[in-house]
Design a protein around this nucleic acid. Structure first.
Ligand code: MN
Ligand code: MN
Ligand code: ZN
Ligand code: ZN
Lengths: 170, 170
DNA sequence: CTCCAAACTTGGAATGATTCTAAAGTATTT
DNA sequence: AAATACTTTAGAATCATTCCAAGTTTGGAG
């Protein structure tokens, strides 16, 4: 949408277009699953469609609370559960903190979790695309999501703790 | 060891030989890290070197408790932390239960976690071997472990709950 | 061999993310 | 409008994991 394409679609616009599309996919899937599109669910999908930060339930809650004071953390958990069960969002597990980080980027990639600063970044990796179906076929599993994560210490944190050779474990 | 090789090493023997070798690697690494080889750590390494079941801390504790009544769950956690920090064991995260499952198989493979029965099985995948270093190089991360997991429903659990389309999420 | 300090283990208490529950709110259907 | 089916919400309950203080064990110095 908004595809003026004067010379090239502006970064901002193209980003928002992609986000909107992703959000629409979420909402359609919820609807298709027979669920209602409540304001809470919309807000959460809106947020998820626009982050690449692998947030925790708590982070989503805090981000939305100001604009949506009645929102409850339980609803965030419930909605994430639904989205994970529909395979729209992946549950990645902890990153040094004890909270589950969620992932909305279903493009083939590997995640890198820093056990020190608890950030998770993406590393594109097209080869990964082939695995899912291969794994499903080879195992007979009904696959709902993936957790493709390498964990360790990011470059920044390595610089800040050159001596410390003992970061937390999970 | 025990390499009689009458005609071929017996399955049992070869399995035990591999396990013993893996255990030795654990113990050597602990020692190399300047840590003491206590009876508790030995017991835990012995157990880990011989399972392919991706156990939780609690499961390890319960398995060892009868033979080692004084063992404490805290020690199991502490030892797992050490092993994870040394990169000898990987922390895989939950499998439908809320507990972290640990992994001792450092051969390149993908894990499949069943969200219903909470079992995790291995799927060999040699290609995976190349990533770790590739990922490290591309990102600058110091990598300590991996969590290469697809989660869903195993064939057995699919059979038992044919109708149920809604397994738990994490 | 004896003694000391450092390294370890242990049981119990504390933490805190996630789950559960019951009550109240909202949409949908009759 | 009333009944019904879904949802949200606040607060309590869980329970895996972490923290802590105290008691043990270990390796080495003397
Ligand atoms: Mn990602
Ligand atoms: Mn495995
Ligand atoms: Zn970091
Ligand atoms: Zn199963």
């Amino acid at each position: 949408m908004t595809g003026h394409a004067t010379t090239q679609s502006q970064p901002t616009t193209s980003y928002e277009a992609a986000a909107a599309q992703r959000e629409a996919r979420f909402l359609e899937a919820l609807q298709a699953a027979g669920l209602r599109l409540t304001a809470q669910r919309r807000a959460i999908c809106h947020y998820l469609a626009r982050t690449d930060a692998h947030p925790t339930a708590q982070q989503i809650y805090e981000a939305l609370k100001p604009q949506f004071p009645s929102l409850s953390l339980t609803t965030v958990y419930n909605t994430l559960d639904v989205l994970v069960r529909l395979g729209l969002v992946y549950a990645l597990g902890g990153a040094g903190d004890r909270a589950v980080h969620y992932e909305t980027n279903t493009e083939p990639h590997i995640n890198l979790a820093c056990l020190v600063c608890h950030r998770v970044i993406d590393l594109p990796m097209p080869e990964v695309g082939a695995w899912r179906s291969r794994v499903a076929e080879a195992s007979g599993f009904k696959i709902l999501g993936a957790r493709l994560v390498y964990y360790g210490v990011c470059p920044e944190c390595q610089r800040q703790n050159p001596a410390d050779d003992n970061p937390p474990s999970e």
